[in-house]
Every structure is written in C-alpha cells, then in structure tokens.
Amino acid sequence: MNNIKALIKKDLLNLASYKVSIIILFVGVCLCTLNTNVANLAPIVIITMVGMISLSTFSYDEISKAEKYLLAMPNTKEDMIKAKYILVIGLTVLGGVVAYFLTILLSYVMNKVNQNAAITIDYMSLLYTTIAGIFGIGLVESIQIPSIYKWGAEKGRVQMFILVFIIFLIIGVAAYFITKFGLDIDITSAIDKIKDYAVYILLVITAILYYISYKVAYKIYKKKEY
C-alpha cells in the first residue's frame, strides 16, 4: 500500500504545477455558467477538465520514461495500475464533489452581491448532472486508460477515438437492424420506468466500467516489457 501511496504522490506532485490554473478555471467555469440558464452544466465542464488533467499523468510518465525506472524500484506492475486507477477515479469524484459545492457556493455569493441575479439552483438536478458528468468522463477514462497502456499516451488518444467510433458504430448498426426488423422498443417509456433509479444505475455502470477497464489494462500491462 505504501508503494501505491508513493506512486500517487508522484503523480500529484507532477500535477501540482496545474494548481493555480485549476482554481482559476474552476471559478471561471462556474461564473460563466451561472450567468446563463444552464448553471447545472458547470460540474460537467469541471469534471471533464479534471478527468483529462488526471489522464495527463500518463504523458508525464511517458516523457520521463518513468515506468521503466519505477519498475526497477520496489514496485510491481499491479501497484502501478492500481495507483493510476485510484488517482484517476479519485480525482474525477473529487472534481465532481468540488464542482457541486462550488456551483452552490458561487450562486449564493452572486445572489448576495447582486440581488437582481436571482440564480436558482435545483440541488437534485445539480446532483444528477454531476453524477452524469462522472459517468461520462468515467466512460472515456475506462476506454482511454487501457488504450494508453496498449499504445502509449500519444497514440492511445487517437486509438481511443477510434474505439469510441467503433462503439457508436455498433450502436448505430444495432439501432438500424432493430428498426429494419420492426422491433418495437419504446425508449421513452423505458427511460421513464428507470428514471427514479437513474442515479444508482449510472453509478453502478460507472463502477463496472472502471472495473472492466482495470482488468483489461492489467492484462495488457502485465505483458508489456521495457
């Protein structure tokens, strides 16, 4: 466990150079969206940014060829993978929590400063948006991390877009055949039925996605040689 902590520490110290930019961006995004009718969007933007920043730790490692050095120290490949997933998931969730409360805090401050601002926040809706944001970036990360382990940080990004394209292509082809064969699937009523459980379903799907992604990444990384 100490090794995993140390590996996370290394990545956090690498990201420390971002700290001022991150704070400015967080506040900036919130202020921009609060002045519109879509204040709920702030968490999505912030979570996406945080998710992308956490993935940049792979680029830092690639530039320094750090993985070879880290494996020469008392670390196993399992430690390395676990540390990356803990960092990425942790930062994404933390980004969501911070974005949620920051949006509420800034809307409160703006309403106090300017009585005419009248920014109303629906807390539940904001929570749903935050969780949807975590799910969205979780989906991207769970595809991108194994891609990075397979093809490297630079190529991995390109390969990820290809994978996402393939996934959408499969969905599109499936939808085409469903329509062609006249299968009657009422998506609107299906969504209505699961609406009350949507948050839990999204959280469970996100957890499953990360788990599958971890297993795939570990399988790839185990075979990788430096």
């Binding site: 290394k10 830092y60 060829k65 070879k68 050095y69």
Partner: peptide
C-alpha cells in the same frame, strides 16, 4: 536494498 541508475529513464522531469 538496490539502487538503480538508468541512462534513459527517471522518476519525472517535471519535479
């Protein structure tokens, strides 16, 4: 109990 120096690889260039 091993110390390692690798020519082309290190912990991080950004620390």
């Amino acid at each position: 109990d091993i110390g390692v120096v690798l020519d082309d690889s290190f912990l991080s260039d950004y620390l």
